[in-house]
Design a protein around this nucleic acid. Structure first.
Lengths: 256, 256
DNA sequence: GTAGGGTATGACGTAAGGTAAGAGTCAAGC
DNA sequence: GCTTGACTCTTACCTTACGTCATACCCTAC
């Protein structure tokens, strides 16, 4: 016959001492014996009973019900379990509804922050934009353009702003480094970073049609002053940057 | 510009006055104005804010979080919603586990209280029982017997005990009334009740094969002293009782 | 003037413990 | 015998989001 102190029993069963105090107070689990100093001592029988209590507690039964189940042997456990099961299913259904509401809210939220097609061509006169779109579709395929637009729109406005800012920053750095060796590390770094951004804007997959589309779009952006062009470097040379970035990408990939 | 008292606003929004008091105290929804007597007065702006509060409350957001969402316009609502969504899904998974555990417990419980095939023939010598089963199957069809056994086993031991006890009770009453008019109300009542029990034991549907099976089983039970036979009435007459019960059933059904 | 309804504040209760304070207990080492 | 550290006791306050009093004040209609 074992004797457990509160601490021992609590460790054995994985509950806190406070919990044992509470269960004692509620009459759910009384110690088999109290020492002269009113220390609680539990026996094996109590350990077993505690296991039962914890089983029902795991099932989210309120302690009151657990007491009823354990005290009254005529208690209709089956009915209690089935009632409980029903309650749990109702809870689950409610959660499903909540998740549905949240999903809907998230979609609404994203629609508000997501780029619209017009945002892509913001600042560019409407007729010019339409003409450009039609031309691009004819040149590189309608699907290519729609896919490119789709990818761009998958960014939130904040993300897009951040990418624009970084491109501007890179361009500025490149301006400063114009006369240094084009093979120097800093220049290569900028080119690589630039390429990564373009890769990201492409949706992770490089397609020549998309690259051409971005290059042309970049030119329009520069004309709209959305980008700071590299000083002394006509916007047409963006294509060269892209070419360099591509070369760099292929090189480094080849190394791996 | 409308002015709402606590009661008016509470009715409008479907919350209690206490809730409005609490929200005021928490700084979640302050009245636009307090009268000299410290009465709270809310305007349309507050009504709108209350709607928002209730929306998030519906989603089980704690009031603290709602306050943060409404107070801080830079609050990352999207992230909060996604975090919340995750928490809800975790809760749902937990509920699924709980329901699974309950189901398992219920099965175990039922296996313990359900009748086993042997229980049906309890008290009857093994060889005799096997012979009887085989004979019954040959006579009324294997499926009929299996179905009858299945139906009987669907009762828990307690239920079956209760039905046996009631049958005994009815038999005893009939013994007492042996010499009264067989058409008298009490006798008819007993017969009717008896039939209802048999109907129940048949699974709600009357089949002649099953009735024959039950009649014979009843005889075996009487021989086993499980039933108190009606005094002065040989067990064979159980069949007559059944016939009378059946007549009664058909009659009363016809009246409807 | 009063009756009836609305309102304000303060306080307690709920479930299942967490956390802490202040005091007593126990075994071991010096 | 004394101290130290680990353990234990009881008491009591804190958590959430209100519900439910109790007491007292306010307002309006008759």
């Amino acid at each position: 016959m074992n004797n457990y102190s509160v601490k021992k029993l609590s460790k054995l069963a994985g509950v806190s001492v406070r919990t044992l105090h509470l269960y004692d107070e509620l009459g759910l689990l009384k110690p088999s014996v109290r020492t002269e100093a009113r220390y609680r001592l539990y026996g094996d029988k109590e350990l077993l009973r505690l296991q039962q209590i914890l089983f029902y507690r795991e099932l989210d039964f309120p302690l009151k019900d657990i007491l009823a189940i354990l005290e009254d042997p005529a208690f209709d456990l089956e009915q209690a379990l089935e009632g409980h099961r029903k309650a749990l299913l109702a809870k689950r259904e409610r959660i499903d509804t909540l998740v549905g509401t949240i999903d809907k809210t998230l979609v609404t939220l994203k629609n508000n922050t997501m780029l619209q097609v017009e945002d892509l061509y913001e600042g560019i006169p409407n007729d010019k934009m339409e003409a450009y779109r039609a031309e691009a579709m004819a040149k590189w395929g309608k699907d290519t353009i729609l896919s490119a637009e789709e990818t761009l729109r998958s960014f939130s406005k904040d993300e897009m702003r951040a990418l624009h800012a970084e491109l501007n920053n890179i361009n500025a750095r490149l301006t400063v480094m114009m006369n240094t060796d084009p093979k120097s590390a800093p220049v290569q770094e900028c080119i690589a970073r630039r390429f990564k951004i373009i890769l990201q804007l492409s949706g992770g997959k490089i397609e020549m049609g998309k690259l051409e589309y971005f290059r042309k779009l970049g030119e329009l952006y520069v004309q709209d002053n959305r980008y700071t062009p590299v000083d002394g470097m006509p916007s047409m040379e963006l294509a060269q940057f892209m070419k360099a970035a591509m070369d760099y990408y292929i090189e480094t990939q080849g190394e791996k």
